[in-house]
Simulated assay, not measured.
Amino acid sequence: MLLDRRRFVTLLGVLALMPMPRMAFATAREVAMDTLLIDKPDGGVPNNKLPVLIYHRVIPPDTADNADYLEHLFRTNGWPPQWRYPVYTFTHFHSNTPEVLGVYAGTAKLQLGGEHGNVIEVKVGDVLLLPAGIGHKQISADEDFMLVGAYPPDVKADICHDELPQLAARTKAVNAVPLPATDPVTGHTEGSMLAWHKK
């Protein structure tokens, strides 16, 4: 059936008033953020001169599926999601890439920086952006604690352990990692676009 102009405009008005699924709002946006600088090595963990970024309340209220929301947000901002899993319970880091971790269920205590590093508590809606080389491990967690993990495009993350003899080589590798072109939470503005690119 062909619509005349009046019916078409009326239809558009009705559509504008209809509730949209929360997934439609998984776009880059400004959120509250803290920074944590862990720039000194700890044992065989090189860490990084760039700060860890911790975003809060990234998931909007009444989101139907938290994991889907985070995956859509990261993908939209150029960070293809790679996995859903908790954090390993041993200290590890990635020498070839930054990593984004989005909490979609439960709470946990994570240690950042190595065996003598900071312990922080994370909960649903928190997102951590770890520069390459930042040690991390799970200290404790709820049974339902889960994350979405993602990396910049075309990256296969290595897994490095706290091995002191490898520190020099891994520090060199970490320092050679390029800055990501976008921020996984805020896209082309704010977040790492300011905190990392202006270092």
Rank of each mutant, 00 (worst) to 15 (best):
H197M: 08
L164Q: 09
D4V: 10
S140L: 05
Y151G: 00
P21K: 02
A64V: 09
K156M: 14
L17Y: 14
L17V: 14
L11G: 02
H136F: 09
L12P: 10
I139F: 11
V87N: 07
I54Q: 10
G117R: 09
V9T: 13
T35C: 03
A24V: 04
S95R: 13
R84P: 00
P46G: 04
W79N: 05
Y55T: 03
L50S: 13
A173I: 06
T107M: 05
H92L: 02
V119P: 04
H136L: 06
K172C: 07
A195S: 02
A32T: 05
F74N: 06
V119A: 10
P81E: 00
H188V: 13
K198V: 04
Y69C: 00
T63H: 03
H197I: 00
L53E: 00
L2E: 14
M146T: 09
F90A: 05
Y104S: 02
L36S: 08
D158Q: 02
L179F: 12
P86K: 10
K40T: 12
N96D: 03
R6C: 07
G125Q: 01
E121G: 15
A150N: 06
L130F: 05
I134D: 06
E30N: 15
H92C: 03
V122K: 08
I139N: 06
G78D: 01
L17D: 13
T63K: 01
S95E: 11
T63C: 07
E143S: 12
V14R: 15
L179Y: 15
A176E: 15
D158M: 06
P41G: 08
I139Y: 13
G43C: 10
Q166Y: 13
K156N: 13
I134M: 05
L50H: 15
T63E: 03
H72Y: 08
R57P: 01
H94P: 05
V103L: 04
V58E: 02
R22L: 04
P180L: 00
P80I: 02
H72Q: 10
N47H: 14
L179V: 12
L53F: 11
L130Q: 01
A173D: 04
D162H: 14
A168W: 07
R7T: 14
R170H: 14
L70N: 06
D162V: 09
P152G: 05
V58Y: 01
A64S: 11
T27E: 09
V103I: 12
L194F: 12
D65S: 09
N48R: 14
H116T: 02
R22K: 13
L194V: 15
P21A: 00
